[in-house]
């Protein structure tokens, strides 16, 4: 970070440079005119060089563009908003100073330059600049941390709605979406269906192949069932253990039965070996379906209970089949 001296007088530039160096401020840039200063500051470049400059000492009276006008032009660039400019002027009359401050100067030094005054005013300007830089760095850090936090919250929210094993929605997310779809179905007068799915003889599967294979089987079932669902609003969730549930908005029992049959078939097609099954040599599922028009008088848990009941009927009816429950009410 450098101090830029802009002065048309070589004697003045040499003096100010030497006095700053004496006070340990050795990183100094020199411009002989406002135009030179603009080039050094990169005012005409797409990338401004404000971050290289911590202070500008600007002679007030210069041929061509004078110091006060130059001050205004530099300050009109947003990236130099926080770079202090001290105007050095031989005339300390009120009008000159008013113009300098109006142009964006933060302070002034009268010529001839006195060491003590130069040191004090430069230190004060640098302290202010450092305080601003520190504040900006803290703000940037805060924004970064907030962005990270928002990202983590989003990820946390996503993870909290997923089943860790299968990667599909978990029971908690199902409960939220089901309540939402239930209210939407009542409001819009649409059908709503629920499909319950349970793996046949899954306990025997685990006993035979071990829990690791059991977990793999659950993942495959989730993939197979999910592949049948085509609409964004259809939701497949793990309800618990080897039980899965599907929400089918705007779908009556006939449509839900079709989807359920496709899922049952898709799982059979996976041909996952199951030597301990009493009905086949591969994994099969039993499915219960319930659905229809929903009215205000209905309770959401009743639809779930009906689908669950239909599932048990499928089990009792010999498994590897789909059963449809009666209407909700």
């Amino acid at each position: 970070m450098a101090i830029l001296i802009v002065d048309d007088s070589a004697d003045s530039r040499a003096l100010i440079k030497r006095l700053l160096e004496k006070h340990g401020l050795g990183d100094i840039l020199i411009a002989e005119s406002a135009t030179d200063a603009f080039a050094l500051l990169g005012l005409d470049h797409p990338v401004c060089l404000a971050e290289n400059i911590e202070l500008i000492l600007m002679d007030g009276v210069m041929p061509g563009i004078d110091g006060i006008k130059a001050c205004g032009l530099i300050k009109s660039h947003a990236c130099f908003k926080d770079v202090p400019i001290i105007v050095i002027t031989a005339s300390d009359d009120a009008e000159t100073l008013e113009k300098a401050f109006a142009a964006g100067a933060m302070d002034f030094i009268t010529k001839p330059v006195k060491q003590l005054e130069l040191k004090a005013r430069v230190n004060s300007a640098l302290n202010m600049k450092h305080a601003i830089d520190q504040r900006k760095a803290r703000e940037a850090e805060l924004v970064k941390v907030l962005e990270e936090l928002e990202g983590l919250n989003r990820e946390l929210s996503r993870l909290s709605s997923l089943d860790g094993l299968t990667g599909i929605a978990n029971r908690r997310h199902f409960d939220q979406i089901f309540e939402m779809e239930w209210r939407r179905a009542i409001r819009a007068g649409h059908d709503l269906s629920i499909v319950f799915l349970d793996i046949d003889f899954f306990k025997y599967y685990n006993d035979t192949y071990g829990h690791q294979e059991g977990d793999d089987c659950l993942k495959k079932i989730a993939v197979a069932a999910g592949s049948v669902l085509k609409r964004p609003a259809d939701l497949l969730a793990r309800y618990g253990g080897e039980e899965f549930v599907i929400i089918l908005p705007e779908t009556g029992v006939d449509g839900a039965y079709e989807v359920a049959q496709q899922i049952r078939s898709a799982i059979e097609m996976c041909n996952i070996p199951h030597s301990a099954s009493q009905i086949a040599d591969h994994v099969t599922v039993s499915i219960g379906v319930a659905g229809g028009k929903i009215s205000l008088a209905d309770k959401s848990q009743e639809l779930i209970a009906l689908a669950d009941k239909a599932l048990y009927e499928a089990k009792n009816g010999g498994r590897n089949q789909v059963r449809v429950a009666g209407a909700v009410s």
């Binding site: 007088s9 004697d11 003045s12 009276v61 041929p63 031989a90 010529k111 001839p112 006195k114």
Partner: peptide, 20 residues
């Protein structure tokens, strides 16, 4: 005028108040 102005501005800074 320009030279006079410059002398006024620099003299005292170097220690030559008379030049200012």
């Amino acid at each position: 005028i320009n030279i006079g102005h410059n002398l006024k501005g620099i003299g005292g800074g170097y220690g030559f108040d008379r030049i200012t």
